[in-house]
Design a protein around this nucleic acid. Structure first.
Length: 434
RNA sequence: GCCCGGGUGGUGUAGUGGCCCAUCAUACAACCCUGUCACGGUUGUGACGCGGGUUCAAAUCCCGCCUCGGGCGCCA
């Protein structure tokens, strides 16, 4: 449709063809208005029954809501029209008529619950707010990619079908690979390290991860988007610097380029780019502060993982993004390096948003002997990871990295109540379709 | 994996044993209306997740099943 004009571009004193969905028809009797909606907005089509061809009027006004129509006519300036212009049609063509009963209402007059919306995602994305989330998601990824390139990272793509998991403990989705046992990858962790060990040095990936945990919460998905970074000759401090720059770049990109979308989500006033630097609390400081809030019935002791309630109390206390560093080595995975001067402490870190964990990362163990010891300490068989460990015999630089939960970044940025809102077609405990 | 709480027209809801052949909004159908912008008005259409039980009487109480949401654990 070469001659199609976006509704937003229809200027007075031109004859245009606009095409889109019938948002609403308001029939006032002698005059009726059809509101046509497309990617860029809406435009009013005027039907004056006495003065216009009966067949034209009938075609336009009989089209059920959400039908796809193409309208050709003169654009006129009209102060009484919602956008200041309206189209007087010469011809109206119904390209695809919609059923009269819709499973949800794209005008937003009647709310729909999330499962209903997800079952009918296309209709849901015709709502301004629905569309806005994914326009912002796109911008967030664009800005993140740019921030990665600014630190000399190369975008890579690693396999999602793998022979072994990353950490052993997590539930993986098993699949059959030409008669052999295989799994959907739960993280690009090991692969990005293998590339960081080459002279590509610094890499990032934005891609899917799969986790077979049967959790049922507003912040977990079984298929999520991981934004990963790994850099050779980086320590955990530099990795945190990169992490901070990517998160801030994502917010800045959205702030600069998504004004309309933020408006559609009622965030125009509230949206702000987080202040830097993000505070870096040690694990020990974190548990002390949590204990001091009195939010937990039982005081945390060194070595405990942070319970959800504690994370929230600390988030309220800090009031913005913050890192937790120097975790006990025992509760971080084998590939995270421990401090040289204290083996009970790891270089692992988490980036927290007041509502939830966003990132985990750390400096990696690049010394093969220590790595193998780590495998054994966690009850994993190093033989199963031969493809990974053998590379550490051929010169592995010190390196560090992290992974952001992409949907969590988006949901915290946009104050979404449920992570499923941040995915077009979420995969969760119940949902496999669409 | 453990533990809670829901399922009422297409959609969103009211309804806690009889006042319910079920409320309201929106939608849909028909009619009226020449400036709507959540258009308005009149009339109408359309539902108690499935199966069993208790009771004179069940949307409402009990049991099983299906299904959805949430909390925790764990994580991104």
């Amino acid at each position: 449709m070469d001659d199609r004009t976006y509704t937003a571009d229809a200027t007075p004193d031109e004859t245009v063809t606009v095409a889109g969905w019938v948002h609403e028809i308001r029939d006032l009797g002698g005059i009726a208005f059809l509101i046509l909606r497309d990617k860029t907005g809406r435009i009013q089509i005027k039907f004056e029954k006495e003065e216009m061809d009966d067949e034209l009027v009938e075609t336009g006004l009989d089209a059920p809501r959400e039908s796809v129509v193409s309208v050709t006519g003169a654009v006129e300036e009209e102060p009484r029209a919602p956008t200041g212009v309206e189209v007087t049609p010469d011809s109206v063509e119904v390209l695809s008529a919609a059923d009269t009963e819709l499973p949800l209402d794209p005008t937003g007059k009647v709310e729909a619950e999330l499962p209903t919306r997800l079952d009918n995602r296309t209709l849901d994305l015709r709502r301004e707010a629905g569309q806005a989330i994914f326009e912002i998601r796109s911008e967030m990824q664009r800005a993140a990619r740019e921030a990665f390139r600014a630190v000399d990272a190369t975008e890579i793509n690693t396999p999602k079908i793998v022979a072994t998991g990353t950490e052993g403990g997590t539930e993986l989705f098993p699949i059959t690979y030409f008669g052999r046992e295989a799994f959907m990858n739960q993280s690009p962790q090991l692969f990005k390290q293998l590339v960081a060990g080459s002279n590509v040095e610094r890499v990032f990936e934005i891609g899917p991860i799969f986790r077979a945990e049967e959790h049922n919460t507003p912040r977990h998905l079984n298929e999520a988007t991981s934004i990963d970074f790994e850099g050779a000759f980086c320590d955990h401090h530099e990795a945190m610097d990169v992490c901070e720059s990517v998160v801030v770049a994502a917010y800045e990109g959205v702030a600069e380029n998504c004004t309309e979308e933020l408006g559609a989500l009622d965030l125009a006033e509230d949206f702000s780019v987080p202040e830097t630097p993000f505070p870096r609390l040690t694990y020990e400081e974190a548990i002390e502060r949590i204990n001091a809030t009195g939010a937990l019935d039982e005081q945390l002791v060194w070595g405990d993982d942070l319970p959800t309630e504690g994370e929230k109390a600390l988030g309220d206390d800090v009031g913005g993004h913050y890192f937790i560093t120097d975790w006990p080595a025992d509760i971080k995975p084998f590939y995270i390096m421990d401090h040289d001067d204290d083996e009970t402490l790891s270089t692992g870190f988490d980036l927290m948003h007041p509502r939830m964990e966003l990132v985990s990362g750390g400096q990696r163990e690049h010394r093969r002997e220590q790595l193998i010891e780590g495998f054994e300490a966690q009850g994993l068989d190093p033989e199963a990871f031969e493809y990974y460990t053998k590379i550490f015999r051929y010169g592995m630089p010190p390196h560090a990295g992290w992974a952001i939960g992409g949907e969590r970044l988006l949901m915290t940025m946009l104050e979404l109540d449920n992570i499923r809102e941040a995915v077009l077609f979420p995969r969760d405990r119940q949902r496999l379709s669409p």
